[in-house]
Amino acid sequence: MLGESVNGPTAGRWPVSAGLRSARTAQGWSQERLVREIEQYAKRHVTDVASTASLRVYVSEWENGKRTISDRYATVLRQLLGVTDAELRSGPPSIASPTADGYDDLLSRIDSAHSVGESMVKAFNDQTELLRTMDRQMGAAGLVDQMTGHLAALEDALNFAVLPSARRPVALALAGASTLAAWQAIDSGAIERAWKHYELAKRAAHDAAAPMYLAHAMGEQAYVLCEAGRPALGLELVRDAQHTLGQAGSARLRAWLYAAEAELCAHAGMPDDCRRALDAAMASIPPGAEDRDPDMASIFLNGGHLARWRGNVLGLLGDADAVSSLYGALEVVDPTFVRAQAGLHTDLAQAHLARAEYDDANTHLRKARLLASRTGSVRQRRRVDLLSERL
């Protein structure tokens, strides 16, 4: 059996209290549920863990700071809870002692960054795309370690790239990866991590002189403000993002920003501005089924996606057209977009509740809850729970 360390700090470990407890409660799990999840993880990955009785003691003592978490258990918990090591543990990692003379190490890292060519940047972007695909199919919870390592490698390459010709392609790759990481953090309920990732994405976009990437990061960051209860401030940020993009950027990104503006207007209680922004989004979206631009790979948006978004926004306004828009989007949604399907069923439940159609709302809430559980989406599960209280 995989046991635990004795009480008290050990080398490379530190006590855990609020970090683990916060991550567990964000998932809506009891301590007993966490024990079961650890055991199921062990069965899936053919690894040993302690007995059920011992795990119950471990979880309690980890959260109360009476027992340290071994690296092997920390790996399991990170995958289950969708958190970073720093978020899981309550103390900072140990810091390596500085060397007497750091010039050799500095020059070595500069030389390594200088060697990052087109093939390496492509490898970075391919890794981001793989993480994006895994995220939309399986959710973000199990990708925290991979994304953390990916961002660290990109930051390291950028920090030690000296000349602009070397910095720009790496900065672009970092901007795209950081924006993805931020949205994954929102989905996992890690709001502070999301905000920091957006700030990193904006700095990288500035470094790359890439207004499209900057505008996209700003637009997504506005959702953090909205969900924190400041939709009017988020709306200002979205409109500033539109100004940043101007008229020279991608039409698909412009449509995305208009749709984001519409949603923020709905939350801010501005129905007329909301409808104008929706009309602008529909007028801007390029025709056809293609949902991505070669210059903006992080945007997935076509007429079908926008119809779902429009239905969501109309539902926020209590508009009677919301249900028909959302059912039209449900017919064409990509089946690999599991989190999007969860959001669509949640939107339909919300629209049916606005019409007092409680049986239909309950049907979609059940489907949304199942899909949100598959992806480990704290954000979608929170929406489902809030709507369920209205049944």
Rank of each mutant, 00 (worst) to 15 (best):
A204D: 06
R390C: 02
A259D: 08
E263W: 11
L200A: 13
L154C: 01
T244S: 04
D85L: 15
T75P: 00
L264G: 07
A171L: 03
A228M: 11
D207G: 09
R339Y: 08
W62T: 10
D360W: 03
A266R: 04
L88Q: 13
S324M: 05
P286E: 09
A356Y: 04
L316K: 04
A194L: 03
A349F: 08
G117F: 04
E118Y: 10
R369Q: 09
S377A: 09
R275Q: 11
I95M: 13
R21V: 01
A228I: 02
G303D: 03
M212W: 02
D319E: 06
G303M: 01
Q341H: 14
M147G: 02
L386E: 14
Q127I: 04
W29Q: 13
L391Y: 04
A26N: 10
L180Y: 05
Q137W: 00
R381C: 04
D321G: 08
A185P: 08
A100T: 07
E236K: 11
E155C: 06
D48N: 15
D111A: 15
H206G: 08
L225S: 10
A281L: 03
H305W: 05
P271H: 12
E63Q: 13
R136Y: 04
T47Q: 15
W62V: 07
H206S: 12
V46Q: 15
L386I: 05
A283L: 02
H352F: 10
A255G: 06
A307I: 00
A86V: 11
P271G: 14
D101M: 03
V83C: 15
E63R: 11
A209R: 14
L391H: 08
T128R: 15
E236A: 10
D71C: 03
T244D: 02
R67N: 12
S115V: 02
R193E: 09
A181Q: 05
D156H: 09
D156P: 00
A248V: 03
N125V: 13
A356V: 03
E63P: 07
A217Y: 02
G249D: 03
G176F: 05
E87A: 14
A173K: 10
P294I: 08
R167I: 08
M270I: 02
S373N: 08
L386T: 10
L330C: 05
G311I: 00
M134R: 15
A166F: 01
E227I: 02
V378C: 07
P211A: 10
L225Q: 11
D279F: 00
I285M: 10
L253N: 08
Y103I: 08
L172G: 14
A266K: 03
T10Y: 05
S108P: 00
D48P: 10
A140F: 00
P98D: 12
D71Q: 12
E261R: 11
R292K: 14
V162S: 10
L278F: 07
P98W: 04
R383V: 02
F300G: 07
R310W: 01
V76N: 06
A255F: 01
G139C: 01
S165R: 12
D48H: 14
E61Q: 15
G12L: 12
V76P: 02
A281S: 09
S90C: 11
L306F: 02
R89S: 14
A281W: 01
